[in-house]
Every structure is written in structure tokens, then in C-alpha cells.
């Protein structure tokens, strides 16, 4: 399997890409989420939306000072791209016209709460468009490494950092596991091929149910 050669972040991106459907309008966050576009299954074409005002992000063919992505970096556009203002951009986001958004996280909890915009006293970059994305996108997928750099869990019983959104997360994908957020709480749907249930349990603080149809990815 080609997946064996993938590094941690690529593995996460590769798994998330399988959630996207042909024709979806998708917003990818900065960092790991951006990689999802590299792993789309064959026959799946999505349009990518950029908060600063366009649909149809593509590879950079030449740098145009008037064309940047939501991180302010030079961007490209695909044939059929559409440009608009911030009002339209957030009507699309908040109004449920974006099929899926993929975002990173500092913490996620078993109630589907998400914290990814600030660490009091340390990092206060601002929420940008994240708070709108999590309330508006039809599906909110969190792509992140299972634990923090110091090994502490990021999937918690309750977030203790300021929230980006309350009960907004639909799915969490890490290098070890795939969880869905349901009315009954977190459900462990899949574990990666090279891990086991005990390892996932040890590295996850949150309570969760193990799916009866647990799969490997």
C-alpha cells in the first residue's frame, strides 16, 4: 500500500480526502488541512473556497499581486473560478453553501466543542474566519495530530482553551483514529493499520464508544 510511505500529516490528509464528494465546495484551513487537496480520490473533483473572496483555488502558475489565498500567500485559480467580496464569501460560509471545511485544532472535546484560535497570554492571532466556518459549513472535519508535541491529549472530555465553536465538530481524523461526533457522544469509527485500541485509549482523554463496525485505515 502506498499509504505506508506517507508521513503523519499526509496520512491524515489522505484519510480526510476520502470524505469529500465529487462536486463539493470545500474550505481548507491553513497548514495540514491544505494538504487534503493533494489526495483526492480519482473521479472526485471539488471546488476550493478562499475566505478572502473566491471559489476555485488552484496551483500558482504566476504570482499576481491581486491574487492571494486566505493566508495572504500568492494563489492560483482554476478555469471557472469566481471572484466576489467578503460579504458574499461569508454568505457562502455561514449560509450552509460550503459542503465541508477541514480545520486544525488545539483541542476538541467529546461534545464536539472546538478550540483552535487562541492560547490566553501566549498566542492571540484572532479568529479570522474560523468561527463563521464552524457554524456554517455542512460538515466540519478536524485534521490534527492525535496528541500535542509534549504528548498531552488533544481530544478531551472538555476543552479548557477559549472555544472557536460550541458543538460544531462532525469528525476528527488523526494519524491513529477517526472519530465521529454524534448525539450519543464520540464514536471511534476507525483506527490506523499500525495501532491498536489500547494505544488509542491511552492517548485520548475523552470518553468514546467503539463502533461495532470498527474499521482499519
Amino acid at each position: 500500500m502506498a499509504t505506508v510511505a506517507l508521513n503523519t500529516k499526509d496520512r491524515i490528509a489522505n484519510r480526510i480526502a476520502k470524505e469529500l464528494k465529487d462536486g463539493d465546495l470545500v474550505n481548507l484551513g491553513i497548514g495540514l488541512p491544505t494538504k487534503v487537496g493533494n489526495f483526492l480520490p480519482e473521479g472526485v473533483e471539488v471546488m476550493l473556497q478562499s475566505e478572502n473572496g473566491y471559489i476555485g483555488i488552484g496551483p500558482v502558475t504566476e504570482v499576481d499581486p491581486d491574487l492571494v489565498n486566505a493566508g495572504g500567500q500568492p494563489a492560483g485559480m482554476v478555469t471557472g473560478a469566481a471572484m466576489f467580496d467578503s460579504f458574499m464569501s461569508f454568505n457562502l460560509i455561514r449560509g450552509g453553501h460550503v459542503d465541508a471545511t477541514v480545520l486544525g485544532a488545539l483541542q476538541v472535546d467529546q461534545n464536539g466543542n472546538l478550540a483552535n484560535w487562541m492560547v490566553p497570554g501566549k498566542m492571540v492571532p484572532g479568529m479570522g474566519g474560523a468561527m463563521d466556518l464552524v457554524v456554517g459549513a455542512k460538515k466540519v472535519i478536524i485534521g490534527m495530530e492525535h496528541a500535542a508535541k509534549d504528548g498531552s491529549p488533544k481530544i478531551l472530555k472538555q476543552c479548557n482553551l477559549p472555544l472557536t465553536g460550541k458543538q460544531v465538530v462532525d469528525m476528527i481524523v488523526t494519524e491513529l483514529a477517526v472519530f465521529t461526533c454524534t448525539d450519543k457522544g464520540l464514536v471511534l469509527e476507525e483506527i490506523s493499520e499500525d495501532t491498536d485500541l489500547q494505544t488509542v485509549r491511552e492517548k485520548t482523554e475523552a470518553d468514546y464508544i467503539v463502533s461495532k463496525n470498527l474499521k482499519k485505515f
Binding site: 467578503s86 461569508f90 479568529m127 474560523a130 468561527m131 463563521d132
Partner: peptide
């Protein structure tokens, strides 16, 4: 700090 969509 204002969420971007709310600012718009």
C-alpha cells in the same frame, strides 16, 4: 477581535 463574517 471580530469574526471575519461578523465584521463584514
Amino acid at each position: 477581535l471580530v469574526p471575519q463574517g461578523s465584521l463584514a
